[in-house]
Design a protein around this nucleic acid. Sequence first.
DNA 1: CATGAATGAGTCTTCATTCAT
DNA 2: TATGAATGAAGACTCATTCAT
Lengths: 202, 202, 202, 202
Amino acid sequence: MPKVSEEYKQQRKKHILKSAEACFAEKGFRETTVDDIVEHSKTSKGTIYIYFKSKEDIYFELIEEKFDESLENYFSSVRKFNTAEEKLRYIIKFQKNLEFTEEEQKFIILQIETNMYLLRKGDSEQVMIERLGRISTFLEEILNEGISNGEFKKEINATVFSKMFWSIQDGLLVRTASKELANHHKPIWDLVEEMMFDYLKA
Amino acid sequence: MPKVSEEYKQQRKKHILKSAEACFAEKGFRETTVDDIVEHSKTSKGTIYIYFKSKEDIYFELIEEKFDESLENYFSSVRKFNTAEEKLRYIIKFQKNLEFTEEEQKFIILQIETNMYLLRKGDSEQVMIERLGRISTFLEEILNEGISNGEFKKEINATVFSKMFWSIQDGLLVRTASKELANHHKPIWDLVEEMMFDYLKA
Amino acid sequence: MPKVSEEYKQQRKKHILKSAEACFAEKGFRETTVDDIVEHSKTSKGTIYIYFKSKEDIYFELIEEKFDESLENYFSSVRKFNTAEEKLRYIIKFQKNLEFTEEEQKFIILQIETNMYLLRKGDSEQVMIERLGRISTFLEEILNEGISNGEFKKEINATVFSKMFWSIQDGLLVRTASKELANHHKPIWDLVEEMMFDYLKA
Amino acid sequence: MPKVSEEYKQQRKKHILKSAEACFAEKGFRETTVDDIVEHSKTSKGTIYIYFKSKEDIYFELIEEKFDESLENYFSSVRKFNTAEEKLRYIIKFQKNLEFTEEEQKFIILQIETNMYLLRKGDSEQVMIERLGRISTFLEEILNEGISNGEFKKEINATVFSKMFWSIQDGLLVRTASKELANHHKPIWDLVEEMMFDYLKA
DNA sequence: CATGAATGAGTCTTCATTCAT
DNA sequence: TATGAATGAAGACTCATTCAT
């Protein structure tokens, strides 16, 4: 006989998570204090510790949520296209069209930092590899689809190509987080696109 | 121990830096305490503050030293080759042959974290962009050399290609830091190499 | 203990201030550690930093409070008298009758030290001069009152006399802080009284 | 068979003391570091600890020296005058004519702080009281001289008057250290002079 | 005697977490 | 459930003093 509905509690948690995201993006995990989150979320320290068992816990839930949410959206919008080429071109187009606002850049930084954090902790095996695997598999399927139906040449190693692709994407993301490349990444993606399709269809 | 040679002092500093590197690589900047460095270096807190004015100072000197040192070695070994193609192939080969020990992987993580840290602080403009610029220019020169002497096709935009190349390298490095890709990056570099030369010489 | 009344918090702050006073009086500002205050107040370091933002902050609030509080009481008790002579004699009598306990002597020392501290910092202009001004003006008014109604002679420069008076008071206070003069100051005040009134009414 | 002459050593000590004086006056005892004194004296930490056994020791020797030196000079210049009145007027004139440079004001602050420091330590009985006694006695003698030869009236209590005089002097000094009264003390001394001689000769 | 590098106890301050209300 | 006051362990940094050269 809970006093408040489950839905209410979910909503409350989401609200805190949103605040935490803003804070972490702004200052990073270590530099963000629980008080920062309290202030941003207009709740209280006690409340936060009702919904999360530690600051680290907030961080993990945030990453989990953020990642899964955006990834599923992404996958499904890609799947709407018919041919493998269209799908791949859409993926590239999506990256190309990302307009990185200050805020988004900060979130990218946060994501990269998080990866490094996880890598260091060695927990990565469980979490990260599974994720990278999912993304990799997603592209592999598209590539294999293209190979089967003759869009792409037979010699392609879909696994390797997929890993390469996401590595490139990662690299461009890292650079994009910096001001140097920020919003100048389009010509690079153009080049990548040209080069890749030359290879895939040669 | 007074009236000690400049050389001795340099050595002492280097020793502390070495210890700091190990600690930072192990736990990251924020999680490493000065006491960790004290313990690892078998010196004392006071001594560390003779040679460095803050924990952050150690960090920056470390990054600086590590980076500049390795970069210059790298550049000069590349320049030994005659043709542009040889040079580029050597660069790729170099990346391909990197055998990342546990320790080196940790240092890569540290470097990436550092970049993120700098990006967040906004101090990055001075330091990082200059560095990325140096690396980018280095490859641009090689590419232009190849274009002039007919090794590579005329249509290549050396600036864009160079940026792309290093982004890919970055991306692979990030992934390599993870256990997933660790020491499985050779086939990916093979693919990159094939694809790139196809494009450059088409 | 959450959601606590403003009054409760004021009380808590006062309690810490009381402890700090005892510690500062005992050992001086610099020699007093925050841990001393913690121990004396039976609270915790954290609590102290909830109510004050630094050790210096405690010090200033203490001085401020102590000073303003006692000064206003003093002024109002003096104003109760009718004639200027009565007022001035009361002021002197008040000084004369001060029985300096060990503790009060220590607080006098603290006050003098504080003045020196402020003087050195140069922040004194704002705070101290304003205070000295208030005290000086207070006596000037009494003197002018006495001059107007014929109690005192016309030739008196109220401003100079006032400053002299408080300097004497200061000097006697400094000496009183020492054991030498402690509680032997009455005959000196008698002499001062005699001499002053001889002059004022000559 | 000392390696260096006693005179050399005395000179060295004096030099360090001079530097310490400047530093203590500038920043106070606690805020002055041994390194400050090292830098100012252009010697070394080791050297300082040859001549003094602690930072506090420097402080005490400084106070001792400074005080005794100036006091003896002062006494002897006063004694040159013939009558008690001349002597007392000279003392007042001396105070009146003090032109307090920034530096001298700082040294006054240091002296006052030192007194407070000594008072707190309870060592005051030995050192300070003896000093205050010497000064007090000095003036008592002058006053008694004046009483004996009819310059001053018989009813004067030389001991009390003397203590009062130095208290006034102390008070004016404290105030003079502040910017408020700085170099505006002459009219006050004029008033004190007038009032005192009115009393002494009445 | 002179030097200054080394030391480490001692400071202030922060902040994640708890728990009484 | 919600609150926010209380806690204290932990961290960065300082500096008087020592002592090998």
